[in-house]
Every structure is written in structure tokens, then in C-alpha cells.
Design a protein around this nucleic acid. Structure first.
Lengths: 143, 143
DNA sequence: CCACTTTCCCCCACTTTTCCCCACCGGCCC
DNA sequence: GGGCCGGTGGGGAAAAGTGGGGGAAAGTGG
């Protein structure tokens, strides 16, 4: 089965709930997700199947490089297990929304193995920067 | 099932009691925890299942390297078996709270196989240091 | 062996947060 | 139209966090 694709803007209601795009629910509905801040500008939403090997890698990392402990602690501290309610919505805690500037609207972006959640205006900003070298590379992949 | 994730600030009451975050209770409610100071700035709280192999490793270590006995004694001396009361709270002895600068508030941080308990301001300090090289590496794990 | 103090932990009470459930609205397709 | 599906909103029960009273148990000193 192919990865997450597409982008969808949904409303964040007064309780912090957002509907997960229907096309992102398939399969992962029962297993649940991990919500975590990996990048500065966005939250990442990973189905358990994607999260498991990452968790294993983090465990390995802290074992082999004890000096990375604090950094990894910062990661797991801002992570959270989430599941959808009967309406297919997830709850994003206030603190997490503030971290990435999420207001009344949330932009769900399919990113293959995971889903990213952006404030719509920030996404605009970050993806607009031109990069011809990169463009050429992308075009060559599709050629 | 995945490990401990998230961070939660709870009040330490006049009796030294703190509510264990509900999401950290699941499963370990019956088995109990070991509270031990491993790092300078935080207390570690390990469910028995995580503690057992560590205890075994400590025994092994003192058997093979008798000169490490004193250090290990220092570890076990300040460790403690704790269990939750009927309200889901644990009791942190005064002396242990002083060791890591815990005041009226305690920050519970999920760290996969264990839970760390920090003074909120100290945690801020320790995890804030930016490190772009490390960030790149983390991002590559999630890619 | 008996007071006396201290610590612990159970119970009850209260407030806040979470989340379950029902309802509605709009678009799409038969 | 009528049924279905996807997105949105809110009421209310249940759970989580917080605080204190009081009795049992453990530690201390005669």
C-alpha cells in the first residue's frame, strides 16, 4: 500500500479536536498514532507501524551515545500517543499547538510514511523558497 | 506497546505526594516502581519490568569488578521501591526531592523504558541547547 | 512493656479535564 | 429525494488531579 499523500485543511474546534482526513485513517484507525514534534515548524503524526522502529533506534542511540540523552529526552517529552475518537478526530494539546503556531486551522500534509500538521501560513512560507537544483533532481526522478 | 511518552507537571502536596500521570500508570499499576537517582538532575522511575534486567547487570558488575562495589552501593543506597496509593499517587521522600531540587512542582517526562522526574526549570535549561548537527541526525531517523 | 511521636496510607470531597455520544450540516451518488 | 459519508459542534458522564482528616503502623524513649 502506498504512503500518505495530499493536503487537507481542517478546523480545530474549541476543545482542540481536529478531524483526521478520511484518506489518512485507513488501516491506522485501530492501531493509533504517535504525535511528536520533530521539526521546528510542524508536528509529525506517525502510525504505530512507523513509530516502532524509530523508538527502537532511539533506545539504541541513547545506549550507545549517553551524551545524547538530554536531546532525546527533549524529543520524547514532546511526544504523545493519540487515538481517534468515534468521529475520526484526534486531540492536539494546547501546548503542542502553540509550539508550531497552530491556530483555528490545521493543514494536514501527507509525507509518505508519516503525516505532518502545519499552520497553513507557515507551510506556504517554507515551501515557497525556490531551489532549481532540487527541482532538476525531482524532475529527473519522474522522467 | 510503546514506551513512556509526554511530559506532565503535577503538584507536590504538603505530604510529599505527587499524582503519577494517568498515562504512565497503565500496566505498571500492579507491579510497582523503583525510584532511583541515576543522573544528577533528575530522579528515574522504573517499572519493575525495566528494573529487573538492570539489577541483574549490577550484580554481574560487582561480581566481575569488585572495585566498583562502593559506587554501586551509592546507587542502591538511595534507591527505593514505591507504589501508588489508591489515588494513583507516589510518595517522594524529602531527601530525594532535595537531591534534584524539586519544589512545589514536579515534571514527569516519558523516556521510553522509564520515567524521569525533574524540577521544571532545570529541565528547561538542560534541553534548550540547540544542536543543528544532532537535529539533522534525528530528522534522518524519522525520514 | 508501655506511652508518645512520626510517618504512612486509606477514605472522602471537590474541581478540572477528558472523552464518549448524539446531533446537525453539506455534498455526492445512486 | 433518500441514504451515505465526511466534517463540525456541544452536553454530560467519567476520569484525573488536588487537598485534608484521621486511624493504623512503625520508630523512639523511658
Amino acid at each position: 500500500m502506498s504512503g500518505y499523500l495530499g493536503s487537507f485543511v481542517h478546523q480545530v474546534d474549541a476543545k482542540g479536536r481536529v478531524a483526521l482526513p478520511a484518506s489518512f485513517r485507513r488501516g491506522s484507525e485501530s492501531e493509533g498514532f504517535i504525535l511528536i514534534q520533530v521539526h521546528e515548524d510542524a508536528l509529525s503524526l506517525l502510525p504505530h507501524s512507523s513509530w516502532r522502529p524509530i523508538e527502537e533506534e532511539l533506545r539504541e542511540l541513547v545506549r550507545k551515545q549517553p551524551q545524547s540523552r538530554a536531546r532525546i529526552l527533549g524529543l520524547t517529552a514532546s511526544a504523545l500517543e493519540v487515538s481517534t475518537d468515534k468521529q475520526g478526530r484526534i486531540l492536539i494539546p494546547d501546548r503542542m499547538r502553540e509550539l508550531v503556531g497552530l491556530g483555528r486551522e490545521a493543514l494536514f500534509v501527507g509525507a509518505l510514511n508519516k503525516i505532518e500538521i502545519w499552520a497553513p501560513d507557515r507551510f506556504e512560507e517554507k515551501t515557497r523558497a525556490p531551489d532549481t537544483k532540487f527541482d532538476r533532481f525531482i524532475e529527473s526522478i519522474f522522467a
